[in-house]
């Protein structure tokens, strides 16, 4: 019953302690876990990429931003930034959570409307256990460039979907496209937008104990984004993308036309939307 006697000072000390832990954890966040995980990574990389092909780790061709400790394992924000001098040379970007049951989170293929400026892709992923998260860019010279971050989170793939089950199911397939196009952006090569799709993205690992059955996997497997008639990117996704898939991306400010999005789930249902952005 220490709590009953807990003084304010004690509480302050406790908070200070937790803060200190938080700070030191952040300081260590750039280091990836090596060793025993190396074997697992070798098998995944040979499956996903051409076996034996070298991958440049810790590459300066891209930046992966991921929280060292995720607050919600089912909604872990991840973002990848590719500098302007590299961006036009990137053909493909693959996002991998090494220890997830389906390690490949998503693969992005870029089109001309991805633009020539700094390229940025942000999304939210599920992390099932403490794992390396890897972003691998394939350049037009055929090289593979990688950045790795270790993320502490657990249970993201089997976490029950949907805090408000009824509201979410009622809105399934609803799409929202947001443009972050501001006045200052007219001088930039790229602008930013975000696509959001209401979908439970059932992983196949979520159980309904009333029936004793796993809810079958059902997720958004493809999202295509265009500016006018020109491709910004198309994405193939899997069960490691969070429910209500959400992708924030940059696109060319020079290509005319609205941003249009078509998404398809594993049932073959398609969802689409478009938004007119300024300057188009």
């Amino acid at each position: 019953m220490k709590l009953n006697g807990m003084t304010k000072q004690w509480g302050v000390l406790l908070f200070a302690g937790l803060l200190a832990i938080g700070v030191s954890a952040t300081a260590g966040s750039t280091a990836a876990i090596a060793g025993e995980d190396e074997e697992l990574w070798q098998s995944i990389r040979d499956d996903v990429f051409q076996a034996g092909k070298p991958i440049v780790d810790n590459s300066d061709k891209l930046v992966l931003d991921a929280p060292y400790r995720a607050e919600d394992a089912a909604v872990v924000p991840i973002s990848i930034t590719i500098p302007a001098d590299v961006a036009p040379h990137v053909r493909k970007l693959t996002l991998i959570v090494e220890k997830n049951p389906a390690p490949v989170v998503a693969t992005f293929k870029f089109g001309k409307a991805a633009g020539l400026g700094e390229r940025k892709i942000s999304t939210r992923i599920r992390v099932d256990m403490y794992s390396n998260v890897r972003a691998v860019a394939e350049l037009d010279d055929g090289s593979l460039q990688m950045q790795t971050k270790f993320v502490k989170a657990a249970g993201g793939c089997s976490a029950p979907a949907l805090k408000d089950m009824d509201a979410a199911l009622a809105n399934i397939g609803k799409m929202k496209i947001k443009s972050f196009d501001d006045k200052a952006a007219s001088s930039k090569l790229t602008s930013e937008a975000q696509v959001m799709v209401r979908h439970p993205n059932y992983s196949g690992m979520q159980m309904n104990q009333l029936t004793g059955l796993y809810i079958p996997a059902k997720y958004v497997e493809h999202i295509e984004v265009k500016k006018g008639d020109t491709l910004v990117f198309d994405m193939e996704g899997g069960i490691s993308l969070s429910e209500n898939p959400n992708i924030r991306f940059t696109y060319s400010a020079a290509v005319n036309g609205p941003i249009s999005v078509v998404a398809r789930d594993t049932d073959g249902k398609t969802f689409s939307g478009s938004v007119v952005v300024s300057g188009s």
């Binding site: 029950p160 159980m207 309904n208 104990q209 029936t211």
Partner: peptide
Amino acid sequence: LARALGARSAR
């Protein structure tokens, strides 16, 4: 409640 517990009880 039952549905919510059903989805979460094992966890």
